[in-house]
Amino acid sequence: MFRTTVPRMAGFVFRENRVPYYQRLFQKHDGKRQWWKTERSGYVMYPYLISVYGLGAASMYAMIRVVLGHKTWI
Score class of each variant (00 low, 15 high):
residue 49 L to E: 06
residue 13 V to F: 01
residue 33 R to P: 13
residue 6 V to K: 11
residue 58 A to E: 09
residue 9 M to H: 01
residue 20 P to I: 12
residue 6 V to G: 05
residue 19 V to S: 07
residue 36 W to H: 09
residue 32 K to G: 09
residue 31 G to A: 06
residue 9 M to G: 05
residue 3 R to F: 15
residue 69 G to S: 02
residue 38 T to A: 06
residue 40 R to T: 03
residue 64 I to E: 00
residue 5 T to W: 13
residue 8 R to L: 07
residue 74 I to M: 11
residue 56 G to Y: 01
residue 29 H to D: 15
residue 37 K to A: 04
residue 3 R to G: 11
residue 61 Y to I: 00
residue 40 R to E: 11
residue 2 F to K: 10
residue 10 A to H: 07
residue 13 V to D: 12
residue 59 S to I: 10
residue 67 V to T: 01
residue 46 Y to D: 02
residue 71 K to Q: 11
residue 55 L to G: 09
residue 49 L to S: 03
residue 42 G to M: 00
residue 63 M to V: 07
residue 54 G to L: 05
residue 60 M to D: 03
residue 1 M to T: 14
residue 39 E to S: 09
residue 50 I to H: 04
residue 46 Y to W: 14
residue 68 L to W: 03
residue 30 D to A: 07
residue 35 W to A: 05
residue 51 S to A: 14
residue 28 K to Q: 14
residue 31 G to R: 06
residue 2 F to A: 12
residue 46 Y to G: 07
residue 41 S to P: 00
residue 15 R to C: 06
residue 74 I to T: 04
residue 35 W to Q: 06
residue 38 T to K: 06
residue 26 F to L: 08
residue 64 I to Q: 00
residue 56 G to K: 03
residue 10 A to M: 10
residue 35 W to I: 08
residue 8 R to F: 08
residue 59 S to N: 01
residue 45 M to W: 03
residue 47 P to R: 01
residue 31 G to F: 14
residue 39 E to P: 01
residue 29 H to Q: 15
residue 53 Y to I: 07
residue 61 Y to S: 06
residue 30 D to E: 09
residue 58 A to I: 12
residue 70 H to E: 12
residue 68 L to T: 02
residue 1 M to E: 15
residue 54 G to Y: 09
residue 26 F to W: 09
residue 24 R to S: 15
residue 28 K to E: 15
residue 52 V to M: 13
residue 54 G to T: 03
residue 17 N to E: 13
residue 67 V to P: 00
residue 37 K to R: 13
residue 58 A to Y: 00
residue 3 R to I: 15
residue 12 F to P: 05
residue 39 E to N: 10
